[in-house]
Write a protein that binds this DNA or RNA. Structure first.
Lengths: 247, 247
DNA sequence: TTTTCCGGTTGACATGGATCAATCCGACGC
DNA sequence: GCGTCGGATTGATCCATGTCAACCGGAAAA
């Protein structure tokens, strides 16, 4: 808020930019449900902010784990690699979402996190987060919910990979993106994909050609309009219906 | 330990049976890494133990969440259901593993947990676990690791469902079971499957016929010996090799 | 402007796993 | 002992998706 800006413009800008209490994503992100006072304590802990250029890694599988990361702006993918070279995208993350939870288990990251566009993240030192969440019940509770939500999300992906056919998978994917963009105040019906067809395919367990064909099919049917990475959803109902009918 | 048993035999037996400090699974389960004193505080919290008969639900999707569950003995599966009737097994859990983490997120369970054999579980009231883990740093840390491990495990399943072919999936599945049985002091090479071919198929994103054929194939090749649900692993190396060669 | 390149689209064909169906086998009840 | 039943195996066929290949088109480089 303008009237909280101190006289020293130089410092104030930094403060504003790094503080959870001034972040418009706070209701989507870790600070959810915290009081003003609690928020300020969380501010103290988010010391580092980093820009990650499109294509760069935020972390790599094998890196020592010490922080989790909140996405302040931008778009990421995470992927895992098998020894034989196969890899799979395990998720796409957008502003307000957390990255790095996979590293807590072994204290080393188990996947790669790569920016799909120029992005900014807040690094949250994990041991300090644990300390603080021992003191702030709301923070502890919310953090647990975030981890659990990730588990539930993963179950959804398993469902998708295990039981759905190609077009159902793509419909589920588009509806999921639409819903998450909506939650961030963007149009639910129109958005740019930040990832390639190949990355979508990897996430959905399909080849890029199959993804491309499904896009074309949806366009023919009038469910969506596709222009490269620009997607307009024309008929949400049909997309939803696609998913809930056993073939 | 015998010398801690109080005079009243009646009570002592109950105490022994429900205490984490006397549980031989404690190194696999929530108490991992706790001091004796910390263990005793955890004991106070594990008040309820329940027997679940084969085929019965421990909880159902939609049930209000208030506890997580540690498996003391037995074997479970979890599955999720789609509105259209499709379902998928999301995991098989054995002694020492935790169930119910999916419920933290929404305070309602999002999957079903079903006993595949007569089992016993310890109910751990979640809000009390949170309180205690605010006081016991080791407990907090370990609980976070358990949740994170679940996320990493799920990534492994996604990998399996997204990139592996039928025989690779089954090999991965068998090796994973073998490894978990080993960790519990059972033979790594010989075990009984508690689940049907259909349940294995559901977990692996395959039809039961495909699972059956893969078992037969493995037997022909001399990798394993199959007799109904009794499995002997004859050639771990070949099974592992199967997984790491791009077809 | 032209060239190059990468990602995307589309077509033709191959194939792994699904589907449908018959049979087997062991457990259990009568 | 005999019949029944559920799970497992096996065979024949089908089809969704993978594979391979040609081509397109926009963006960046030359």
């Amino acid at each position: 808020m303008p009237n909280t800006i101190p006289l020293n413009q130089e410092i104030s800008l930094t403060v504003i930019k790094t503080a959870c209490s001034n972040c418009n994503l706070r209701e989507l992100c870790l600070p959810f449900g915290l009081s003003l006072e609690e928020l300020e304590r969380l501010d103290d802990l988010i010391s580092t902010r980093r820009r990650i250029k499109r294509g760069d890694h935020l972390y790599r599988a094998g890196d020592a784990f010490d922080s989790i990361y909140a996405i302040r702006s931008g778009f990421f993918k995470t992927d895992v690699l098998l020894e034989d070279g196969r890899d799979q995208v395990t998720g796409f993350q957008m502003a307000g979402e957390l990255l790095g939870l996979d590293g807590i288990s072994t204290e080393h990251h188990t996947c790669n996190a790569i920016a799909l566009e120029d992005s900014e993240i807040c690094a949250i030192p994990f041991s300090r987060l644990e300390s603080l969440s021992r003191e702030i019940h709301n923070l502890q509770r919310h953090f647990h919910k975030v981890m659990s939500r990730e588990i539930v999300r993963d179950h959804g992906v398993m469902m998708l990979l295990g039981t759905m056919r190609a077009e159902e998978r793509l419909a589920a994917f588009l509806l999921n993106l639409s819903q998450r963009f909506t939650a961030r105040g963007f149009s639910h019906a129109e958005f740019y994909l930040r990832m390639t067809r190949e990355e979508i395919g990897s996430y959905l367990g399909l080849k890029l050609e199959t993804v491309s064909r499904a896009f074309s099919k949806f366009q023919e049917e009038g469910y969506i309009a596709v222009q490269q990475k620009h997607i307009r959803i024309l008929n949400v109902k049909s997309l939803k219906a696609l998913m809930s009918h056993r073939s």
